[in-house]
Computed example of a mutant assay.
Amino acid sequence: MINREIIRIKIVQLTYAYYQNGNKNIDSAEKELFFSLSKAYDLYNYLLSLIVELTHESRRHLEVAQAKAKREGTEAPSQKFAYNKFAMQLEENKMLNEFMETQKKSWNSEPEFIKKLFVQITESQIYQEYLTSEDDSYDADRELWRKIYRTLIQNNETLDSILEEQSLYWNDDKEIVDTFVIKTIKRFEEKNKSKQELLPEYDSEEDRDYARKLFRATIMNADEYQRFMGEASRNWDFNRLAYMDVVIMQIAIAEIMTFPSIPISVTINEFVEIAKLYSTPRSSGYINGMLDAIARHLIQTGRLMKSIDEPKKKY
């Protein structure tokens, strides 16, 4: 699940913190990096468990409604949502249950939020259409939760506030993690039952090594990389730049120099996008031009054995 987009963002955050922190211990900083990455995986599981908790809430409401219908002799309420086939499969998922058993956090601490979100779901057109539909298939049940997640959970300010209060590490993670939750919902298959695999923390050991190498190269070769910046721009003035710009370019150069298989244009584009999120409004255009100039200078001087493609302008 933890992909290179998340890794790059975390390294920008941790490198910036490393220089702002008076105690510059690279081993401690590296441990903090991997702890921060692990928290993103925690969030992934926590958000999946939200679907389970909302299902439990629906059953509580169902029990009350059933008792009322029996008492008043009215039609029994629908059980369709409370026993949604996809939600029941997720509820029984071995990987999710094993993970959540190790966690101190649960949605039991947020009863008011769960109640409010459940009401929002039941009042939505998506829910009403689902209840009235004659399609009782597993695919329809799974699609319902994909729609609910995208419309009522993915962009939910109350949820964002709750997550921010629960962990400072989750401030910048949710937008990316949401995409993995939706991907997971779409990947579920009824035949896999409780053994359906969730996304692993890392797709491969290669990504973990990438994080370690990129972070260490950034810190240990800082003077050299900043010299490259100076050579590419004789008018270079660190005092006129946002410090975050320097950090972002330093990490980008580390990736360009350390990973031969990653095209230069990919690296530039990825860090230009990060600059849009973390630096000044003008930074992305400046960083795009500077990294392109630095890469060309390193190739011309024989210090970089890569070819350069024209980077796509995204600023």
Rank of each mutant, 00 (worst) to 15 (best):
Y44C: 05
Y83H: 12
I308Q: 15
V64S: 05
E57D: 03
E129D: 14
L96R: 02
L43V: 08
Q79A: 10
I262D: 06
Q166T: 01
I253C: 06
T280M: 09
N269P: 00
S49L: 06
M220N: 11
I268H: 10
I294M: 11
E53M: 08
F34Q: 03
I26F: 06
I274V: 14
R4Q: 12
Y130I: 01
T179W: 08
R59A: 03
N288R: 13
L48F: 10
W145Y: 15
M249Y: 09
S284P: 10
A17E: 09
E255M: 13
P281G: 02
L131H: 05
Y210C: 01
M1C: 07
Q300I: 02
G230N: 06
I176M: 06
K193E: 11
T151H: 15
L90Y: 07
S265R: 13
K191E: 14
L199F: 15
P200E: 10
V247E: 02
N84A: 04
L37E: 06
D223P: 00
Q125W: 05
I114E: 07
L50E: 03
A242C: 06
R146L: 08
G289I: 05
L163V: 02
R4N: 14
E98V: 01
F259Q: 06
S137W: 14
N269T: 10
F180M: 04
R146K: 11
K183D: 12
P311I: 04
K276Q: 14
H56Q: 04
